[in-house]
Computed example of a mutant assay.
Amino acid sequence: MEEEEIVDKKPRYSETEKYKVFDSEFMPHIDSMYNFAFRLTNDEDGANDLVQDTYLKAFRFINSFQKGTNAKAWLFRILKNSFINDYRKKSKEPAKVDYQEVESVYNSADEPQYNGTVDLRTEMVHDLIGDEVAMSLNGLPVDFRTVIILCDIEGFTYEEMAKILDIPIGTVRSRLHRARNLLKEKLRSYATSMGYKELR
């Protein structure tokens, strides 16, 4: 879904109504949006940029949103498409090195890693699933990672996921089945190392 495809039926809002809809329908989902963005990007700055971009687009295309419908699914679809478009764009660019980042890592090599600041949202996301599960989930290809996040973490129905991802429900089911199996394989060795035995 490209940006122009978001615009279909256009309930017209006044400028005052636009801000009311934005605040009442969109803003309550900002934590879920950040968690989804962080799971997709594995990066705090990238997640923040993605959420900001999503909310800018949501406001820009607010006339295509029908008040009282599923705002969360609508926002997730915009975020998912923004991520995919950005991912495609970056994959076509030559690799870049951030020399400032390299220099700061080099200069701080002998310093303690804790800098006294903590992003509570990031901690919450990590604590929500546990480090090994989070690492295994992050290791999945993005299509599989996305369906697990949408279904098992965010609780969307298959119908909602089909709309967010713009794929048939049958594809949602099969992709989710494959994603869960891949995740299970990744976690099997960890479970064994923790002393769990697979039931026959």
Rank of each mutant, 00 (worst) to 15 (best):
E2C: 03
E2D: 12
E4Y: 10
E4A: 05
E5Y: 02
I6S: 00
V7A: 00
K9H: 09
R12P: 00
S14C: 05
E17R: 14
K18G: 02
Y19T: 12
V21W: 07
S24K: 14
S24M: 10
F26Y: 15
A37G: 06
R39T: 14
T41F: 02
D43M: 13
D43K: 15
G46C: 10
A47K: 08
D49K: 15
Q52P: 00
K57M: 14
A58L: 05
A58V: 05
R60W: 07
S64N: 08
K67S: 10
G68C: 06
A73R: 13
A73F: 09
F76W: 08
F76V: 11
N81V: 09
F83P: 06
N85F: 09
D86E: 15
K92P: 00
P94T: 07
P94A: 04
A95H: 08
D98R: 14
Y106P: 00
N107R: 15
A109K: 12
A109M: 13
G116D: 05
H126V: 11
L128Y: 08
L128E: 14
L128A: 14
G130Y: 02
G130W: 05
D131I: 13
D131F: 13
V133E: 10
A134T: 10
S136F: 03
N138F: 12
G139S: 10
G139R: 07
V142M: 06
R145W: 08
T146K: 01
L150N: 07
D152Y: 01
D152W: 01
F156L: 14
T157P: 11
Y158N: 15
P168Y: 00
P168H: 04
G170Y: 07
R173Y: 04
A179H: 01
R180V: 09
N181C: 06
L182P: 00
L183P: 08
L183I: 08
K184P: 00
E185M: 14
E185V: 11
K186C: 01
R188Q: 15
R188H: 13
Y190Q: 10
A191L: 12
T192L: 12
T192S: 05
Y196I: 07
Y196H: 14
L199K: 12
R200T: 11
